[in-house]
Amino acid sequence: MRRARHAGRTFAWQMLICICFLAIWQWGYALHDRLPWLVPDLLDPYFISRPSDIFEHFLILSCLKSKLGVFNGWFNGEFARCMARSENNLWIATAVTLKNTFFGFVTGVSSGFAAGLVLGRSDKLSAIFQPFITAVNSIPRIALAPIIVLAFGIGDTSKVVTSWIVVVFLVFFNTFEGARSIDEGFINAARLLGASEWQITRTVVIPSTMAWVFASLTPAISFALIGVIVGEFIGAERGIGRLIIESEARAEASGMMVAVVVLMLVGVALSALIWRLQAYLLRWQQHNLAE
């Protein structure tokens, strides 16, 4: 009861903050001439647009409205024509960026996880690879993006590779640490119950490394998205990053902001998916709280 009231109050505060934020964004600059000492120049809609313009631009970019400001309607064919006309409309751009993020994430997580497990469980291999890993890890991976685009072209492959390269190390290091810090007691227990090396890996090493891996997945999904967007900045025909570059070329702040808002929503949705998966796979950890 008390907790419910508390949650309600929290929500009310959150709403209030949102409304204030949006209101200042929308109308704050109107006060600039009268109160120049209070309202910074940066609030100029030329730079940061304003919520109503962003929404308007969202409708246009997503073919829900024509450029003249008329609602397209779903059934008169205008929507379909607009979709066909603009190669990089918001739907396609989002789908392309999401797809590349997904592949970058999946390949990065799986290869980082596998490498982390192998090196984490083998003192010999980790000793051999240690200096190389440290060296490569010291490179800001994003700096490789232009080279990757040069090598793999402006198609989707270069985005997946950029995304992969920023994700793989993150997951690798977490898995590696996790595999190093496994309680030897668990491994001995499994071995004495007759487990083979592969059974030990499957039933002890992987489950006990999971908590470490999951700790890296939420940042990994943001990193995957960053990798794709940077790749699209450098050279792409489609994608949200491309949308941002196009809007920037036309000095259209509202267009960039649409892209940013969409990226935010995509990021939140993907993180929520990870949290759900984590809550399921690591459900044994929840019970620690009940003790």
Binding site: A189, P207, S208, M210, W284
Partner: peptide, 10 residues
């Protein structure tokens, strides 16, 4: 074992 080594994830 001296301390129980039950797998916490099972």
């Amino acid at each position: 074992f001296q301390r129980d080594t039950l797998f916490p994830w099972r």
